[in-house]
């Protein structure tokens, strides 16, 4: 296991690989003021995510993992430091600009799927485009294509309540891709799923990453994290380790998952 704590990327826009960055984080801090006491959730975190990367963010509770997730998702703004999405620093954006960034550059996949109950599968997939103001037939076609891509081509008009957890999460993944985001931000996306479904979802992430999608995965499960290319661990609001996962480890993790799946299938 090659460990590389504080992997410095140097100047902005200069990466060790493909050239472009999906996101770049510099000295990010976030304080929460709770009554009299100030909680320092992030105390200066810096790292880059190049395009095509597959990063798992880990850390115990209280490590600032959720805070970092909210900042990466542009749902919150840092106290100091910068978070670049493309060329734009979210630290200096207005609420409406953040909303635009969310609809254009980020693909969310949540733990509890978070589909809108009164909308059908296709309509749910289209929501980010809807908030970009794009409502045409082409957008619908794109949503249908993505639904087919995640294997739900025969359930286009179903409601979320008519789908299983795994199916709902696949709708959520399709939705996260509809705006062709800089990265897919997955928050404990397999936390509510059994081994079989977890494997399906993670296999989908693997495929997407192979197609060139950047994926940032927040998880507390090691076997999920080890399928990523890289694990960023947080501790006490700071970057603890930043390790590259070797291909052997990833294969091993997939095999371990496979064993769990087979065991579960055998029991059923």
């Amino acid at each position: 296991m090659s460990t590389a704590p504080y992997r410095e990327t140097g100047n902005l826009g200069v990466t060790d690989g493909s050239g472009k960055l999906a996101t770049s984080i510099r000295n990010l801090t976030k304080d929460y003021v709770l009554k009299s006491e100030t909680v320092r959730a992030l105390r200066g975190v810096s790292f880059d995510v190049p395009e095509g990367d597959y990063v798992a963010i880990m850390g115990p509770s209280g490590s600032g993992k959720s805070t970092l997730l909210n900042l990466l998702g542009c749902l919150d703004q840092p106290t100091s430091g910068s978070l670049f999405l493309g060329d734009d620093d979210i630290a200096i954006m207005s609420d409406d600009e953040l909303a635009d960034i969310r609809s254009q550059r980020i693909g969310f996949v949540f733990q509890s799927y978070n589909l809108i109950q009164q909308l059908s599968v296709v309509e749910n997939i289209q929501v980010p485009l809807y908030y970009q103001g794009k409502l045409g037939a082409a957008e619908r076609q794109r949503a249908v294509t993505l639904a087919e891509r995640v294997g739900l081509g025969d359930r286009l008009d179903h409601r979320p309540s008519q789908l299983s957890g795994g199916q709902q999460q696949r709708v959520a993944i399709a939705r996260s891709l509809v705006n062709d985001p800089l990265f897919v931000l997955a928050d404990e996306s397999t936390g509510n799923l059994d081994s079989v479904t977890t494997d399906e979802i993670l296999a989908l992430f693997d495929e997407l990453n192979e197609e060139g999608r950047t994926i940032i995965l927040v998880t507390h499960e090691d076997d999920v994290a080890e399928r990523a290319k890289r694990i960023v661990r947080l501790k006490d609001g700071m970057l603890h380790t930043d390790e590259i996962i070797s291909e052997q480890q990833r294969v091993a993790a997939r095999k371990a998952q496979q064993v769990a799946v087979e065991e579960l299938l055998k029991r059923q």
């Binding site: 609809s103 809108i116 929501v127």
Partner: peptide, 13 residues
Amino acid sequence: REIGIRRALGAKQ
């Protein structure tokens, strides 16, 4: 929750 989802997916206030 629906409002949260919509906001996360790009809805402005």
